[in-house]
Each structure stands twice: as structure tokens, then as C-alpha cells.
Design a protein around this nucleic acid. Structure first.
Lengths: 232, 232
DNA sequence: TTCGTTTATCGAACAACGTTCGAGAGAATA
DNA sequence: TATTCTCTCGAACGTTGTTCGATAAACGAA
């Protein structure tokens, strides 16, 4: 070959690990909108097309990124053998919730594809194993676990999204809340009696505390069902 | 109002009503990805830029579309004065759930902006009013209502998204479920005891039934709290 | 070594999207 | 008629996900 430039251009070399890790880093640093193929390629020091060798889709990239983060949750909930099954289930739920709230993109991609999200499956099973200890029927167990997962994901998604509605990444939750409070206060107290009733609570509430309160309500319902099924 | 007088009119004439209505029609017909400004403009028989006179953003368009749909939920849950507050709350929750499941785009935009979503506020208040009848404290009432809303939105979002993951619009839920079942069956029964335990239930489950079961668990927990607070 | 095949990288190019902008039509007002 | 205000329009811009052919590098066989 009559090479015009003898200088051998060194090509970058990637790996699935690097791709997913840098994707997560990009997401954590500046939110979901910051994860573009071009930005990711630049961060990897390579070209755009290279990423498509590891991942066939942006959806798949996000699936893998989500599962990558769940590894931390999995590690944090190892060795749970407390006396109360639902206490352990609660620990898993709270850990998962705290992880999702900080990353608004996670909720939408949790357990979307079992094949590419083994950690999600492991976590799901780990939660289920705790509920199994209650001795409920397969159906009741399945329903209870699904309810817990739905509640965790749903509440976390709602919050993380509501907070990122105004601020793309940094959490300026204070301003959001103040604005909503002012708006509610301006509403007619007779047309919106409930809003008026809880306004002070709303103004001072903490998302994490509120989530735990709701979770405890759900767990109390499950506990009640378990007690009933043992002596009907 | 909507009378289209085509007499030598070179320009089309729109209205907020038409814009939002056609946006919803587009969303219902072919899913979230089908709602583009160009497609909407074509449907309205006008230009792309015109839409921006009524709506400053695509987010605002979706906010308004979401609220437009909630009007139906609001109409379907009028005049609820049953003897049991939580029965009425359940009716609202189930109605909302059924509405969201059929429209995957709704969950993400429910109650994002109170200013542009008056119906969401009304519905939220209506649900809260039922829970208020339990006589709980403001804090407990607020927590209970938030838990219900989080559970409804979360579960609905999870389901509607899981179904639209493979099929963009039409509900081919059967194929999805079969695939997941086959995948789970292939997993190790010892590494995933819970998945193995509920596999048959999972294969035969109905999303709507399962949601109602989970909702009843949560409501049972709330009921328990209401009973406790009245006699200690 | 040399050849051939597989693996992996690269960036230009494409289509679609949200959004902006200036030009102007139409009706109301003065 | 002249002026102003409301509303429409579509070309154009920048950004996005994705495709594609060219090609470098690694590897095994001859």
C-alpha cells in the first residue's frame, strides 16, 4: 500500500464494561438528556459507530446501564436473615427506592428485559424470597411482591421525575415545592378541601419519610393477610 | 365553533381545544412516538409553527393532553358518597388505573404541573376527600393518599410500559408474557427459588386483577391504621 | 513469513425530531 | 384608509439515533 501517511493511527479499544460504566457516569453527572451516543463516544475517546458493536440500541444501552447500577443495590442487601421477613423486605425496598430517586432514568428501565438485566431478576427474586417466608399461597405471594415492587418503582419514578421537571439534574427541590405550595394556597379552600387540609404537611414533608410511611402501610396490609391465612 | 367553512380560505384556523383533542387522538391511535409536531399539524390541516402559538413546548402539549384525558376519569367518579370511604377511594383508584394502563404516555405526565393540569388536581383532591373521612391526622391522611397515588401511577406505568416495550401500540401482551415465562423457566430453580415458586401464577396472571389485589393490601393497611388511631 | 478470516473501530451521511423565526393573512379598531 | 393585534405558515437550524462501507488490528493456518 502506498500509504500517504505512514503514521499508524492508533485506534481506541473499548469493552462492554467501559461502555456501560461511562454511560452510567454520564447519566449520573448530567441526567438522562446528557447520554447521547456522541457524548459517550467522546468520553470513550472513540467513534460513534463503535458503541453499536456492543449495543444494538439506545434502549439496550439504558437497560444495561440500569442493571449495572442495580449491582450496588444487590451488594447492599446481601445476607438478610432477620427474624421478620417483612423487615428484610422493607430493607430491600428502601435501598432500591433510595437508589432510584437519585437517578430519574432508572425507574423507566427497571426490569424491562430479563435477558439483559440479570441483576434486576436477582433483586426481584431476593425480595420474593423474603415474602415467601410468610407462608402465603403462590398467588398471594406473587401479588404481594408485585405490589411492593410497583409501589417502590412508582413512587420513586413520580418523585424523581417531579424534581427533574424544572431542574434537569441538580436537585433544586426547594424551589419546586415552594412554588407548588404557593399555587395550592391560592386555590379555593371549598373547592379543594383536601388540598387545603394537608397544605401544611405538604409544605414540610420529606419524600423519603413519606415513602417509608406508605411502604409501611402496604406491609401492614400484607402482614394482616398473612395472619388471617394462618387461622381462618 | 368547529364548523369548518372552506370558503376560499387559504389559511386554517385552530383552537386550543382542537390542538389538544387531536393530540390525544394521535396518541391513542399510535402511541407516544406518533405524536410529532409535523404529524399533529398535518392532522389539523395547518402548519407546524401554528401549534407553538397555543403551546410553548412539547412537554406542555403532553401536560395538556394528559389533563384532557383525566376529564373522563373525573366524570366517571362523580357523586361518590358510599358508606365506606375507602370503597369510594378504591373506585377512583381503579378507574384511574384502567385509564392509564391503556395509555402508556399518561403515567409520565400525571400531575407534573398543577397550573396546566387542573383536572389532575381535582382528581387528587377527590381521592383525598374520601381518605379524609377516615378521621386521620393531616400527616397520616397525606401519607395515605400519596401512597395510593404512587401505587396506582407506578403499577400502571410499569405495566403499560412493559407491554409497549415490544409492541409500540397494539397490545400483544400474550407474546410478551410467553417469552418471559419461557425465559424464567430456563433459569436455575435453586438460584431463583421465588421465580420458580410463582412461575405458574405469573404465566396465568391478569394485570388488572393483580393490581386490585395489591391495592386492597394497601387499603387494608390504611384501614388498620384508622382503626388503631381511634382506640388507643 | 504470508494469506485469509474474524473481530473491532471509525466517522461521514441520512432521516426524523423539536424548535425558531420572519413574513404575512385576517379581523378588529381608530 | 391606516394601524394594530391576533394568528398562521413553512423554510431552516441544530441535535438526535442509526446505518453503512471502509479499514485497522488480531489471530490461525499454510
Amino acid at each position: 500500500m502506498a500509504a500517504t501517511d505512514k503514521r499508524t493511527r492508533t485506534r481506541a479499544t473499548h469493552s462492554m464494561e467501559a461502555v456501560v460504566t461511562e454511560a452510567v457516569a454520564l447519566l449520573d453527572a448530567a441526567g438522562e438528556s446528557a447520554l447521547t451516543f456522541r457524548a459517550l463516544a467522546a468520553r470513550l475517546g472513540g467513534g460513534v459507530g463503535s458503541i453499536y458493536w456492543y449495543v444494538s440500541n439506545k434502549d439496550e444501552l439504558l437497560d444495561r446501564a440500569s442493571d449495572h447500577v442495580l449491582a450496588d443495590v444487590l451488594a447492599a442487601t446481601e445476607d438478610l436473615h432477620g427474624p421478620d421477613p417483612l423487615d428484610d423486605a422493607r430493607t430491600i425496598a428502601v435501598t432500591l427506592f433510595d437508589t432510584i430517586v437519585q437517578r430519574s432514568w432508572l425507574a423507566a428501565y427497571f426490569m424491562r428485559d430479563g435477558e439483559q438485566q440479570p441483576n434486576a431478576l436477582r433483586l426481584y427474586d431476593r425480595l420474593g424470597r423474603q415474602v415467601m417466608r410468610l407462608g402465603l399461597s403462590a398467588r398471594d405471594t406473587f401479588n404481594a411482591v408485585s405490589a411492593i415492587v410497583g409501589f417502590v418503582i412508582g413512587t420513586a419514578a413520580d418523585l424523581s421525575q417531579q424534581h427533574s421537571a424544572s431542574a434537569p439534574d441538580a436537585g433544586a427541590s426547594g424551589q419546586d415545592l415552594e412554588g407548588a405550595v404557593a399555587q395550592w394556597r391560592a386555590l379555593d379552600g371549598e373547592a379543594f378541601p383536601y388540598l387545603h387540609f394537608i397544605l401544611d404537611e405538604f409544605a414540610a414533608h420529606d419524600d423519603g419519610v413519606q415513602f417509608r410511611a406508605g411502604l409501611d402501610l402496604l406491609l401492614a396490609g400484607i402482614r394482616l393477610q398473612a395472619a388471617d391465612s394462618h387461622k381462618p
